[in-house]
Amino acid sequence: MSSPLTVTVNGAPIVVPSGATVAVAMVIAGKACRVSVGGEPRGPLCGMGICFECRVAINGQPHRPGCQILCEQGMDVRTDE
């Protein structure tokens, strides 16, 4: 694997291995991806684009499935909080 990347999650820098998905970055950061309609924190469940529990805003685009998108250097990831 090539060298690690840095993305920001709600503004805080997080270092991830290259080839990591955004959902992986969220788990490494220890951050929930979204807050459910009833107010519960949620994180990835299926890891394969089925459940949408991993959706986050990526570079300003809302509701992106984090488990299907690879991290890129400097990517801006934001959650519902």
């Binding site: 291995p17 998905t21 490494i28 994180g43 990835p44 299926c46 890891g47 394969m48 488990c67």
Partner: peptide
């Protein structure tokens, strides 16, 4: 895809599918 069954606490973060966690590790989760 995996079949999931609901039980108390299954919505907590870091409760994932079995294949789900494997997929995350394949994508770089240490």
């Amino acid at each position: 895809r995996e079949r999931f069954l609901p039980f108390p606490g299954w919505t907590l973060p870091n409760v994932m599918g079995a294949g789900g966690l494997q997929a995350m590790v394949k994508c770089g989760l240490p």
